[in-house]
Design a protein around this nucleic acid. Structure first.
Length: 608
RNA sequence: GGUUCCGUAGCUCAGUUGGAUAGAGCAACAGCCUUCUAAGCUGUGGGUCCCGCGUUCGAGUCGCGGCGGAAUCACCA
């Protein structure tokens, strides 16, 4: 668990003081001791006057009076005793307190004095957390679903490390198994030795091409067998491509040199391709595990567990876990031919990782289609006696769907990761060139801005959605650059930077000491309140594993700032105290926006 | 069929210990650039929060029962 450090109570100070005073008030006025959870303080909603609100309903049982009278009575008492409260009003059962201008300004000053907006986000008890994300198969290139996975995983890494945790980014590469053999076999049969060099194709795409080819040829074989009168289920097993694939997997597991060489060669193509995509997405890993290296440990674990009577064996020699006692099912762990399945290697990988890192928590960033898999994984590890399995957390995120449903390779509706990234950058280029604000930039500088904007749009689009929920991506409507989008937030930042460039030209610089003298306007107080919420938002995002909270917070802040920017002049303000205050307010806003986007893996352009 | 998740404006999404009149963006319509960046700002229209019952002073939020959708229950990963 994450807890705010003592000094972070600065964030909460007013709520805590108010709560204490109210408790005192109720005690004095109604002569009774109230439980803390009955004193509900929240930020006052925008459409009402005030800063903090006490919900008085829970206190009526003590006052034995109407909500209005109770609110008035408590309000009067508090205003009298608590000088930071400048006034109050009661609407229905809500007692709205108004906080003095100077309290807000003091608060703002302490915020402005921070080195970074993330300074206060440290957890009391830092933990070692492994985050596994990406987890590609080496038989096809990455697609939109992987993009969501990678962005979530990487953002969780940044959020958790910003809160002081020791986070290890890891990746399990599913580089072996029957599916890999399919693309290998198809390449052997149909490629005439085609390579990335000879074809000019990116390696992962080339291998993917032969995986698709396998599926096509295999389906044809099945239909021929079915036409000849064979049952479809039987045909699926009997098709020569399938029997050859199974033979290949057996050869691979027994270390056949020829199969092994082919496997190594094709995987190296894929890795070169993946590296390119990861680099473009801006994600990386501290430690990469390969299924081909962990599945053996998994097999050993299974055999040992069988000897310990934790598992059972069928007459055909296949090995199973009976989890019906845990409300789950029978689960196969080793096939009758002795080869490993997905679960086998995941058992091996988990044990391997714990032995290496002794993590407190292990986050698996894996789609919700595998919820059952992780229930089973934890159950088996627990049964094997690994207490740390309680620290395994399936970060189960939703699928990315198209308007017509799931992406299907057979229907050619898979949205390729590389293609999408290129498209986003091209859209960013088109929009930017049309606006023509970067005319004095070199081509390289321009391209760098286009890259930041295109990726910013893509990343924000994906991360702003609650990770648990399925989301829809419509390829026909390209990702927006207006409204609640990444570019909107980048734009807000670029505008602020532009103010500071102008300030420099005018010889104006911000002065943190003179902000105490200012009388802040309503809009400025609203901004300070929003800025104040940042630390809490980051903590919520860390405890709730939700980058979306940060995205939505950033949007709200950017929108609020844009209104302020529109309605008030900063450098054009005549009163130097007010001008300076607005300048510092803009500065802090830009820093918070930049930090927030950094937590999402989104870069900020200085101009756009 | 069993289990799990989801259902909020035409579309995409917010709405976190149950709190006030359910919010944004997109799309539509009407405005705002001699000014620090109009990728912006302002306004209008748009809702049976899937339905019903219950708990509560108070339910989009919690419970139960329906309806609709998704995932999963593989010697696939």
């Amino acid at each position: 668990m994450l807890y705010l450090q003592p000094e972070n109570f600065l964030q909460k100070k007013m709520e805590i003081l108010l709560k204490k005073k109210i408790k005192e008030a109720v005690n004095f006025l109604y002569n009774c001791d109230v439980a803390d959870n009955l004193i509900q303080i929240q930020e006052t909603r925008k459409d009402f006057t005030g800063d903090f609100t006490l919900v008085v309903f829970p206190l009526l049982r003590f006052s034995k009076n109407t909500p209005e009278n109770t609110g008035e009575t408590i309000g009067n008492y508090i205003v009298d005793k608590f000088h930071s409260i400048s006034g109050f009003n009661v609407i229905k059962g809500f007692l709205n307190f108004e906080i003095s201008n100077s309290w807000w300004i003091d608060y703002f000053a302490s915020m402005a004095a921070q080195e970074s907006p993330l300074d206060k986000c440290k957890a009391v008890k830092p933990e070692t957390v492994m985050v596994e994300y990406s987890s590609p198969n080496t038989n096809k290139p990455l697609h939109l679903g992987h993009i969501r996975n990678n962005l979530l995983g990487y953002s969780l890494f940044r959020i958790l490390s910003s809160c002081g945790h020791n986070v290890i980014k890891t990746n399990i590469v599913n580089d072996r198994g029957i599916h890999i053999c399919k693309s290998m076999l198809a390449w052997e049969k149909f490629s005439n030795g085609e390579t990335p060099e000879s074809s000019g194709m990116k390696g992962d795409h080339l291998v993917g091409k032969y995986y698709v080819r396998f599926e096509k040829e295999y389906r044809e074989q099945i239909s021929k067998l079915v036409e000849g009168g064979m049952d479809e289920a039987v045909a699926k097993n009997a098709a020569s491509l399938m029997t050859e694939t199974r033979d290949m997997l057996l050869k691979w597991e027994s270390g056949d040199p020829e199969v092994y060489e082919l496997w190594k060669m094709m995987n190296s193509w894929v890795y070169a391709g993946f590296d390119e995509t990861y680099k473009k997405l801006g994600v990386d890993f501290d430690k990469i595990y390969y299924e081909s290296e962990t599945y053996k440990l998994g097999k050993e674990l299974v055999v040992t567990a069988l000897e310990n009577n934790i598992l059972y064996q069928n007459e055909d020699n296949s090995i199973w876990a009976d989890l019906t006692g845990e409300g789950l099912d029978q689960k196969l762990l080793l096939r009758s031919d002795g080869t490993a399945v997905y679960m086998t290697q995941d058992l091996g990988t988990a044990v391997n990782r714990f032995n290496e890192y002794h993590f407190d928590k292990h986050l698996y960033v894996v789609g919700n289609e595998q919820n059952y898999h992780f229930q089973v994984l934890t159950a088996i590890l627990k049964r094997m006696g690994y207490e740390w399995a309680d620290g395994l957390i399936h970060f189960s995120y939703g699928m990315v769907e198209l308007p017509e449903g799931r992406m299907k390779s057979r229907e050619g509706t898979i949205v390729d990761a590389d293609d999408l990234i290129v498209e986003m950058q091209e859209t960013a280029r088109d929009v930017s060139l049309e606006l023509g604000k970067l005319a004095d930039f070199s081509v390289d500088e321009q391209e760098d801005v286009f890259r930041k904007i295109g990726l910013g749009a893509l990343k924000y689009y994906i991360l702003k959605v609650d990770p648990k929920k399925n989301m829809t991506f419509n390829p026909a409507e390209s990702i927006d650059f207006n409204g609640n989008t990444g570019p909107f937030i980048q734009y807000t930042y670029a505008r602020i930077r532009s103010v500071f460039r102008k300030a420099e030209q005018l010889g104006i610089s911000e002065d943190y000491n003179s902000i105490f003298d200012v009388k802040a306007g309503q809009k400025e107080i609203v901004l300070i309140k929003l800025l104040r919420r940042f630390t809490q938002t980051v903590n919520d995002a860390a405890t709730g594993y939700s980058p979306a909270l940060i995205a939505n917070y950033s949007y709200e802040l950017a929108r609020e700032y844009n209104q302020f920017y529109h309605d008030f002049s900063i450098l054009g303000e005549n009163d130097p105290v007010v001008r300076n205050f607005r300048l510092v307010l803009s500065k802090v806003t830009s820093e918070v926006l930049k930090s927030a986007m950094w937590l999402l893996g989104i870069e900020m352009p200085e101009r756009m």
